[in-house]
Design a protein around this nucleic acid. Structure first.
Lengths: 211, 211
DNA sequence: CGTTTTCTTGAGATGTGTCAATCCTCGTGG
DNA sequence: CCACGAGGATTGACACATCTCAAGAAAACG
């Protein structure tokens, strides 16, 4: 009933529209959900991190492309047995509901970003989100330097942010020029002043973090 | 434990950040979820139609503004008793999961729209979605004329689509000029050829409807 | 009717996309 | 060890879609 599968970085795990006869939990690695239009325009619509869930109980067709961003390990369950489990174990459905509500909130935050933010704000928001994830930044009260590795190409960033890779590159350069971030090489980012970065996101940062 | 509340069109039901000591189901009317930035930029992030659910079990603070688009009737449950009910009645959590997954899919479809579609495609997509909702268009095989009432102002459309109201107005005029839609007054829309409208959405309409 | 809201339309500004050239960085093979 | 090539990234020039600001027109409303 339960088995493991591995995918290499860049490999497609599921194609949009394909039948998906299993559900899975991400054990290790990062995968992304994306939609592609006929002419090639692409938009990332979700990110799967370890412990995240893939697949939808009660629906066999995958609505998005799922691609491994890094090497990914999945823990898969065949659809039938899993749905049986859901019916017999109430706690499973409740946990899944929790996770889905979190994803919905994340998606809605992204709607604001895509619909209303400028390119610079989009980049700053993405960097802030990654930085926050990489450490429990909330505890460090803004005063510590913070360095992390950008886990994606400029093109992937563009696909997340609804931009072109050229615009991403330009805005990253601009943030660097303005001293909001520092770069060692292309991927290693240092944030000298986190609150400065937050200012650039356009978000209301008084309410967000501290409440 | 259960009680009804009514809100007039335009009235705010909950402010973002406020404590929400109830959950509710929409009985009648349309409400919208939106986020607003400090400088006034606004993005709609969800739509609540009759039977939709408002509020999140296990979290008291509302993450968005909820506004009545029309006169709205809510059926409210106090938070404590409802969470009790969720624990004792597995079916409730399962149903809620279903609904949340649907909302997540809708939000993700919207991500593609906001991130990658042109203004014209955005308008066409919105009209197609509204038209589809207003009737089970899928059955009518493209050949029937179809008329409906736009339930929102140009400004509300702009807030959904991540555009300005001027751009919305211009694109609606353009679609009218090109014969994709017809207008009687400002709000009554006729779609002479539904597949023509679908072509304008940018979506892959071969796969979407017929499978 | 006046008044207000909503919508349309225009002219010009601007942010982002497009196309193209160049530059890194790094791994590979001569 | 160096040359080479490939993928990723940067940068420039220009095009163009959408925004901004502004004036009116049309509809809704008292």
């Amino acid at each position: 009933m339960k088995y493991y599968r591995e995918f290499e970085a860049g490999q497609t795990i599921v194609w949009s529209g394909d039948e998906l006869n299993f559900v899975a939990s991400v054990v290790d690695g990062i995968a992304s959900l994306s939609q592609t239009m006929e002419d090639g325009r692409r938009q990332m619509v979700g990110l799967l991190l370890p412990s995240d869930f893939l697949g939808r109980p009660g629906r066999a067709a995958a609505p998005y492309d799922v691609t491994a961003s890094t090497k990914v390990t999945l823990c898969c369950f065949r659809r039938g047995p899993f749905e049986e489990l859901m019916n017999t174990t109430p706690h499973v459905a409740q946990r899944l509901l929790e996770m889905t509500l979190d994803e919905l909130d994340a998606a809605r935050e992204w709607l604001l970003l895509l619909g209303r933010k400028t390119a610079r704000e989009k980049i700053a928001s993405l960097l802030a989100i990654i930085a926050r994830r990489k450490a429990a930044i909330a505890q460090h009260n803004h005063e510590t330097d913070f360095t992390f590795d950008l886990p994606m190409t400029r093109e992937a960033m563009a696909d997340y942010l609804g931009l072109t890779l050229e615009t991403v590159s330009r805005q990253v350069s601009a943030l660097k020029r303005d001293g909001v971030i520092k770069l060692q090489g292309k991927r290693e980012v240092t944030i000298p002043d986190f609150s400065r970065l937050l200012d650039e996101t356009g978000d209301d940062n008084d309410g967000g973090l501290l409440v």
